[in-house]
Design a protein around this nucleic acid. Structure first.
Length: 351
DNA sequence: CCAGATGATTTAAG
DNA sequence: CTTAAATCATCTGG
């Protein structure tokens, strides 16, 4: 910037300023327009203007404003301006070619995706998962689970709120700053030529800067979510055994379908409802049961016999009930509801 | 406290 | 996606 200025001024006045220009930094000594005794008015004018330009930053605001006005009204101003424009025309293009590429930062994308996945950004968290959780909690003995989950959600909501507030703040600040800079540039464009491309570039720089700040925000938000998540995940791992009744029902199904212990989706749903657990818990249970049964059939033989006998007893009782037409099931009979009792079949192996 | 039981998660294959 | 298998983390009864 300074270099450019110096170069332009040099070109303008033909006076060698290099001697006491950039190296001096801000404290440029005034040119003292009257070098020599030429008394040339034009030169003095130029020197005067340059002096004003170079010292403008040292002035107080009012002073500077007045000086600026003076400059604007100076009779040489239009001429100087046009020369500046001309120089700019020649040099400006080479200043910046085309450096307008915005490759989407993979890191940023990762953060965005995660925030979206965690429900921090994006649309308000729907009731879908909430309903599922509520069902799971209300159904089983999982009041505990429900409390933990709501705690988790409350904290997540808190994080989301902070995130959105901050994001909005940054957005606003960015817009304000951009507007400010653009006003400044517009103002300056009265005394020096500024191409729209330059403004655009400036805006781009500002936006990049602010988005890097946003990146930090997203980073720390992600961190917070991760911490919360890991803490909750540990809690989530806290498992509670299914109720005795649920285990009974599941075992009954398993041993009465021992030849093909793969409940269909519908069967799973029914079992889930009957056991007050989720479908995926039913799937987990059958997955675990199959592998563990297969691993040591002998160990489960007793259990198998027990349930085979149980269903046999149930069937017998059902028959007896049918025969007697009025008797209620024995209290030890686990399934007394409208549950479809599977047929008695205790043989059959996996595979 | 411990060993075994058990629900959940991860990994790998189809 | 489902499943088998391995593994994790907790629960439970002694």
């Amino acid at each position: 910037m300074m270099e450019e200025q110096a170069r332009i001024m040099q070109a303008l006045s033909g006076v060698t300023l290099a001697g006491h220009s950039v190296q001096g930094g801000m404290g440029l000594p005034p040119p003292h327009g009257h070098e020599g005794t030429d008394g040339d008015g034009r030169k003095q004018d130029i020197g005067d203007i340059l002096h004003q330009i170079m010292t403008i930053t040292d002035q107080s605001l009012d002073e500077a404003q007045a000086k600026k006005h003076g400059l604007n009204c100076h009779r040489m101003k239009p001429a100087l301006f046009s020369v500046l424009c001309e120089i700019k025309e020649k040099t400006g293009l080479s200043i910046r070619g085309a450096q307008e590429q915005d490759p989407p930062d993979p890191q940023l994308m990762r953060l965005d995706n995660m925030l979206l996945a965690e429900g921090v950004s994006g649309p308000e968290k729907g009731g879908g998962s909430a309903a599922a959780t509520a069902a799971a909690a209300a159904a089983g003995g999982g009041a505990d689970n429900s409390i933990e989950h709501s705690d988790y959600r409350a904290k997540l909501t808190q994080i989301r709120q902070i995130y959105h507030t901050e994001l909005e703040k940054y957005e606003q600040a960015c817009n304000e700053f951009t507007t400010h800079v653009m006003n400044l540039l517009r103002e300056q464009s009265r005394t020096r030529p500024i191409s729209p491309k330059e403004i655009e570039r400036m805006v781009g720089i500002i936006h990049r800067k602010f988005s890097s700040i946003q990146m930090q925000l997203k980073q720390s938000t992600c961190e917070a979510v991760m911490i919360l998540r890991s803490r909750f995940l540990d809690a989530r791992r806290k498992r509670r055994n299914f109720s005795k009744q649920a285990t009974e029902i599941l075992n009954e199904y398993f041993y009465s379908h021992l030849s093909n212990p793969y409940p269909s989706e519908e069967a799973k749903e029914e079992l889930a409802k009957k056991c007050s657990i989720t479908v995926s818990q039913v799937s987990n249970w059958f997955g675990n049961k199959r592998i563990r049964y297969k691993k040591n059939i002998g160990k489960f033989q007793e259990e198998a016999n027990l349930y085979a006998a149980k269903t046999a007893v149930t069937a017998t009782h059902a028959v007896a009930a049918a025969i007697h037409n009025s008797q209620a099931n024995s209290p030890t009979t686990p399934n007394s509801g409208g549950y479809h009792t599977p047929c008695y079949q205790s043989d059959g192996r996996i595979q």
